[in-house]
Nucleic acid binder design. Structure first.
Lengths: 253, 253
DNA sequence: ACTAAATTGTTGAAATTTCAACAATTGCAT
DNA sequence: ATGCAATTGTTGAAATTTCAACAATTTAGT
């Protein structure tokens, strides 16, 4: 009967692929064994790191939680400081645009906590949901093709929509910062960022130190068009020089 | 106090991003409210299609379809049957519109599992995220004001955007089905639904039996404009009669 | 066939969750 | 301020799960 156990474990894992969460009782009936057997199976599979227990059941440990989890934690504290500093820069805003990325979502959470009675236009799902907490903020979603990895809308519809806007500030993230300008690893996002850039009085770029000197094909702006750069470490000398020449206000937190 | 509720819902959603599964008890202690409050929050967020209940907790609905939990979500199995039946009705579609609600999110999950190379236009975050995994489906988000409780876009921008579309099918949910027509509990959603209705060759309404004879102020359609109704139980006689007179094709699964 | 070990089932009590009904509180409009 | 509606808290009983202990069954090796 040793083999039946392996078979069962395989079935359990397969079932987890179909259903995000399983219940001890259902699985016992489904596989024709007692609930205690399933419970013991869960224990073993949990120990092997294949699933996580819930009260009465189990969920896959391969869920969406760990996709970006580790990466986000890496600069968690830094992003928090960047977000807090960025919010102080837009305290007088009445309407603003916010781009996509881990840092901008953090900024949105800070805005939700500190500002009131403003309007935010965004193409990032995470930003919209972060701002929804605050009942006094109106959130406008930009149309477009949904981009799963960035959880944002992109494409022509997004860019056309932006043409009819003009706001106080635009807050953008960046995965790369070079002498040429800020860039994004995702071309579709870069295109939307570029379109956003022209639609605001002032442009604030936020990025942590990991973006320094990272070069991506899709640069979305020239430095002279950027008003402020908020980051968590002193940029390398060459970049620093370009920033000064381009009159970009630098904020290191 | 309405604001605290939205805040909590946002925190719950955020917590789901960190931990793939949450427990009612933990969340209650963490947010400093009673377990019953969390339970009610879960109910509402489930209705919006943002999460799935487990015994004692909840998991993100972004995973896959959930074949368990008859008692957890009272109409879980029914919704699954409705979703499966609905997909068979649109198997020949090349482009379709999908509305918001727990049932339509489930339909989207089924579509992601079964259809390929189609375009879906939606205003519901949950629908977009459900379809994202299937690499062959193009998802277009409708612009508009973000509505936290329904996790959908609404308002004038959404309705104007819809005017430029014409698709094969539109799939809508309904919180109430009366002799007058299908209705939504949320006026903003009803307005978008009404706008969607005119932009498709055929209109399919999906609703579980709990919607029968529920009357809301915001009816979004007359029955003659509905092509099919997919539900899980025989409607009451009066409604049945109206459906027949209005030539609504009825599908009970 | 026999034994020892592993696996699985059974049972009842304890812990936890759910559910419904009702009370208390809060927010908002008149 | 007053009243109404929405939100939240409280309570106790019912349903469900967990846990530990023990019994029954199956497997593997000799």
């Amino acid at each position: 009967m040793r083999q039946q156990k392996r078979e069962r474990h395989g079935k359990i894992l397969a079932a987890l692929g179909l259903a995000s969460n399983l219940r001890v009782t259902d699985l016992a009936r489904q596989l024709g064994v007692s609930t205690e057997t399933i419970r013991r199976d869960f224990d073993e599979l949990t120990h092997a790191g294949m699933l996580n227990r819930t009260y009465g059941g189990a969920v896959s440990s391969l869920g969406a939680s760990n996709t970006t989890g580790a990466k986000q934690d890496l600069f968690h504290a830094e992003r928090q400081r960047i977000a807090e500093a960025t919010v102080t820069q837009v305290a007088d805003a009445r309407i603003l645009l916010i781009g996509s990325g881990a840092t901008t979502v953090r900024v949105a959470q800070q805005i939700a906590a500190q500002l009131k009675n403003i309007t935010v236009v965004t193409h990032a799902f995470g930003v919209a949901q972060a701002l929804a907490n605050n009942g006094t903020i109106e959130v406008m979603m930009i149309p477009g093709l949904y981009h799963p990895e960035e959880a944002s809308t992109t494409g022509g519809h997004a860019i056309v929509f932006l043409q009819s806007l003009y706001v106080d500030y635009v807050i953008l993230g960046a995965s790369g910062l070079t002498g040429d300008g800020p860039g994004s690893a995702v071309p579709e996002i870069a295109a939307v960022n570029a379109a956003m850039l022209g639609r605001a009085e002032k442009c604030i770029v936020t990025a942590d130190r990991s973006a320094f000197n990272l070069h991506y094909a899709t640069r979305y702006a020239d430095w002279p068009r950027v008003s402020k750069l908020v980051t968590d470490a002193q940029p390398p000398p060459a970049l620093l020089n370009t920033l000064r020449k381009s009159q970009v206000e630098l904020l290191v937190v």
